[in-house]
């Protein structure tokens, strides 16, 4: 058979690559012999992307999700089929499909610019404020992670005794608080995405981080109260549109109150520790 001659294979059952070779070998053997064998189609694009909408308990939606359409359809009836092209994501958001072969510096630059743009979108006025789901489409958890660790470090530095307990309590309060707040919105029947919500709540800590830093440098209690009130209002202002649009208007207060409560407790931590 001409195909087996052109592609020499060494079948082995020891690794996944050998399984792939077995699949190629099986396809060659199963083809029907003919007087004029056609040339096998070859994939011209070395990178392929598959999209799978993961059914997870963190996503609740009143509307049923639309069925995913196949992005690449090749007709089997065509006598000379074109080379099969894998589906390429046409969405302008997120990484491009050729991220498998990009240099390392491009990856680093993209992640850093994503963190900066997400921070600007959350804590500063932006054109997407009326549609907050669009603002944080390209979510990440690096910014929230940095802000939580920074706040914990600032509080533990301010504390004169029990630095370890202060840090652990601050970290656990913020990390678990974000998870509980997201689950609260989901249990209220809100339409929210788990990781996007975690990302937003983490970025909203940026004003409180600045406030904690100022309070660490100043020892005056009145200055502390004023700074914490300002940064607390700022954090609440940043979190308001996202949380309010996630649930129905009648349950808006139930979704917003725990967020405000968490930020108030963080504010009290900042004021009380000296």
């Amino acid at each position: 058979m001409s195909h087996s001659d052109t592609i020499p294979l060494h079948p082995s059952s020891q690794s996944d690559i050998d399984e792939i070779e077995n699949l190629i070998n099986a396809s060659v053997h199963q083809s029907v012999p003919s007087a004029r064998p056609p040339s096998p189609p070859r994939a011209s694009i070395p990178v392929s992307v598959s999209v799978s909408t993961a059914p997870s308990p963190f996503i609740s939606s009143n509307l049923p999700p639309p069925p995913p359409l196949p992005k690449s359809s090749v007709s089997a009836v065509t006598p000379s089929p074109p080379p099969p092209r894998p589906g390429i994501a046409t969405s302008g958001f997120g990484p491009a499909p050729n991220t498998l072969t990009e240099p390392v510096w491009d990856t680093v630059k993209r992640d850093l610019s994503r963190i900066v743009s997400n921070l600007k979108l959350v804590v500063f006025p932006n054109p997407y404020r009326e549609d907050p789901g669009k603002a944080l489409r390209d979510w990440d958890l690096w910014g929230p992670f940095f802000f939580i660790v920074f706040l914990g470090l600032t509080l533990s530095w301010s504390a004169s005794v029990k630095k370890s307990e202060v840090f652990a309590v601050a970290f656990a309060l913020l990390a678990a608080g974000a998870v509980i707040l997201t689950l609260n919105v989901l249990l209220l029947g809100g339409h929210i995405i788990f990781f996007q919500s975690l990302s937003l709540l983490g970025y909203c800590l940026f004003p409180l981080d600045v406030g904690a830093l100022i309070c660490m440098l100043k020892d005056n209690v009145i200055v502390k109260v004023v700074v914490v009130c300002v940064t607390l209002a700022w954090s609440s202002w940043a979190a308001y549109p996202f949380m309010s649009s996630a649930v129905s208007p009648r349950r808006k207060a139930l979704a917003l109150y725990p967020v405000f409560l968490m930020y108030v407790s963080v504010g009290f931590l900042i004021i009380a520790i000296d």
């Binding site: 690559i17 070779e21 392929s48 992307v49 799978s52 979510w139």
Partner: peptide, 23 residues
């Protein structure tokens, strides 16, 4: 990686080389 599409849904994307490159 994970991204959010135009409909506001969370989409997990899995990217891999083609079979010849994987081999």
């Amino acid at each position: 990686w994970n991204e959010i599409n135009d409909l506001g849904e969370s989409v997990w994307k899995f990217e891999s080389l083609d079979q010849q490159s994987l081999a």
